Simulated assay, not measured.
Amino acid sequence: MYQFTYAEVVDDSPQDMRERERDALARCIDMLEAAEKAGPQSAEARDALTFLRRLWSIFIEDLSSEGNDLPRDLRVQLISIGIWTLKEIERLRSGAKQSFGDLIEINAIIRDGLA
């Protein structure tokens, strides 16, 4: 699992930070793909959705901070994607949705945009 101290993250260059975000999203996508194969009630699904929820919670918190250097419009758009992601996670957990495909696709787009 990805665990970093705050000091390690703060000292990173923007390129290093994007690389970590890309790596975390890639790991998440791998987990979501395994969950898609195992089914929405599987341990793989539980683990993938927990990881994804934590990751997007971190992203949303960072995007909401005044210290974030991204343009405001981009931050707002990414926060909207994050909120949608959190809602999709709950739909999967509740059984209202059965496929992880949309989450995989959106997170892959975000990951690829960090390249």
Rank of each mutant, 00 (worst) to 15 (best):
S80E: 00
D102P: 02
D47R: 06
T5W: 09
R46W: 00
S80G: 09
V10T: 07
G82A: 05
R46D: 12
E61H: 14
L49A: 01
E44Q: 15
I104T: 06
R91A: 11
F100D: 06
N107Q: 04
L32E: 01
D12T: 12
S57R: 13
I60V: 11
E19F: 11
E19T: 10
D62Y: 03
L86N: 10
R93I: 08
R18D: 01
A96W: 10
R54Q: 12
G39T: 07
K37Q: 12
A96P: 02
R54S: 15
D102G: 07
D30A: 10
F51G: 05
Q15D: 15
R53G: 01
I106L: 05
E88S: 12
R111P: 05
L63K: 07
R75N: 08
P71I: 04
A7M: 09
R75L: 00
L32K: 09
P14K: 01
R46Y: 08
D47T: 00
T50Q: 07
E90L: 01
Y6P: 07
L49H: 05
L92W: 01
S65Q: 10
S80L: 07
F4K: 15
G95R: 06
D30G: 13
N68D: 00
E33W: 02
A26K: 12
L52I: 04
N107G: 00
V76I: 14
G95Q: 02
S99V: 02
L103H: 07
Q98A: 12
T85D: 01
F51L: 10
V76C: 01
R27Q: 13
I58L: 08
V9I: 15
L86R: 12
R91T: 08
W56N: 00
M31I: 11
I83E: 02
D73Q: 11
E36L: 04
D69T: 14
A26D: 12
L92M: 10
G101M: 05
E36R: 04
A7L: 11
V9Y: 13
E19Y: 10
E36I: 09
T50K: 07
L78I: 02
L70V: 06
D16K: 14
E61G: 13
E8T: 04
D11Q: 15
G82H: 09
D11Y: 10
D12H: 09
S65W: 08
Q3I: 14
E21G: 14
G39Q: 03
V76F: 10
I60M: 11
I83Q: 11
E33P: 02
